[in-house]
Amino acid sequence: MELELNEIQEQVSRCIRCETCMDVCPSYSVKKEYAYSPLGRIDALEALLKNQVTENEEKSLLTCNICGRCTQVCPQNIQIGELVILGRNLLYTKEVIPTSRHKKIIESIINKENAVTRERNERVTYRDSAYRKYVESKSDTLLFLGCISSFFQENTAKAAVQVLNKLGIEFRLLQDEGCCGIFLYDGGYFDKAESVFKKNVERFESIGIKRIVVLCPSCYKCFGIYYPKLLGKFDIQVFHFVELIAQKVEDIKIRRLTADLGMDLILHEPCKMSRVMHITEEPRKILNSLGIRFKEFEENKEMSFCCGAGGGVRAYDMNLALGIGASVLKKANDNNIVTMCPFCTMNFNHSAKKNGLKTKAFHIAEILLSSLEVFD
């Protein structure tokens, strides 16, 4: 705890109040209230260090998407997202959180092994017999579907399985996959996160998993950064789906043809892909190699827009998450969105429905499957 307090103190003391971060913060851009800004969060952290805890500190810290846009422009390189997580841990130790909604999600992760409060047998690998042969596979490469694709974005799961199968990539699935646990870590519930991490590692090691392929950047960040950080080591290789496909794209005989998918696309890059894992060229390589036409957002790559759902925001303030999502949809200018995250896909489509927008969002696995089918 002392190390956490020192880390918060050292970084917040470097803030020069230049307000550069204000213009790029997704929550502040929607709410226009100081508490929802990076500077508001700096103030909340300073208040916590003085043991001053009010609803304002809770609101400020729990509405941060941990998207990293503020750090990209900060002249002092303050890691506000990381500090917010430490601040949330302080709220947890002071018993300010979990909120009632957080309690339900935490209980679901621990008891039902998913972050979406569904029963185990509702997972797609239970309900669809088409997945059985992959569950029974002995491959040492695991396709980790993630909670959102397993329960809500089933088209993403099905598309990824079919694309890997079409490309001759061997893999397996887990029927009882479990949650990666990122909600727990990002929420500051480090003790609970460590327990879930250890359980997952034991499961992976028991069946000889050497590589994990994820569809979700949050799972990627969790396995790639949080697991070794909290557990000391994590020896399993982790890849995002697009990294694996980018390695294989030169083998696809249909490359450089034009895939007429009947829609105009614009490429969206999830926060954890572009700013954390620094994966920006792979999706462009794949789409270009297949001749799939797409446009770019004015701000992209390391300054890509946040969808609004991450960092626990959708669980804490649904309207804020949808408002941020709608702001990105409007910037898409009626182009349909292709992204690399099922959570982004879900939040964008929910935002579009709520705001009466025609824009649709697709995971890149769905677009790839459509293009492969065009050329079959």
Rank of each mutant, 00 (worst) to 15 (best):
D186I: 14
C216A: 13
R211D: 15
I279S: 04
N65I: 05
A44V: 02
R314A: 10
A332N: 10
Q175H: 07
L329Q: 10
D264E: 14
V116A: 08
V196I: 12
E177I: 07
T63R: 01
F151V: 10
Y92H: 08
K158V: 12
M273W: 11
P283L: 06
E55N: 15
A352C: 02
S289R: 00
S137I: 01
E299W: 15
A159I: 03
L164Q: 10
E10T: 04
L357K: 08
K253Y: 13
A44E: 03
C25P: 07
C219Q: 09
K354Y: 13
I78L: 00
S139H: 02
P228R: 13
C18E: 06
T156I: 14
T339I: 07
K198W: 12
S108Q: 01
K248E: 04
I236G: 12
E119R: 01
N319M: 09
R127G: 12
C64Y: 10
L368V: 09
V328I: 04
P217S: 03
T71L: 03
S371A: 15
N335P: 08
I225C: 02
D176R: 00
A159H: 03
E302H: 12
T20D: 14
I80D: 02
P75S: 05
A193Q: 03
S29R: 04
Y189K: 04
V161L: 06
A246M: 03
Q162L: 09
E373M: 07
M318F: 09
C15D: 02
Y131K: 01
P270K: 00
E269V: 10
C15S: 00
N319K: 05
R256C: 09
A321T: 10
S371L: 09
K295C: 06
D317K: 03
T258C: 11
V328Y: 05
A193F: 13
N355M: 07
E250C: 03
V73S: 06
H363K: 09
A47C: 09
H363L: 04
M263I: 15
C15F: 00
C64E: 12
L48S: 11
N121C: 06
V53G: 07
C219D: 15
I207A: 05
C147P: 14
L368M: 11
G310C: 02
R101D: 15
I225H: 13
C147W: 01
A160T: 10
P228M: 07
I110N: 11
N355S: 15
C67S: 12
I16F: 11
F241D: 14
A332C: 02
L290T: 00
S100M: 04
K253T: 08
L244C: 07
S370V: 01
P26H: 05
G68P: 03
S27D: 05
D176L: 01
G68T: 08
T280K: 10
I42K: 00
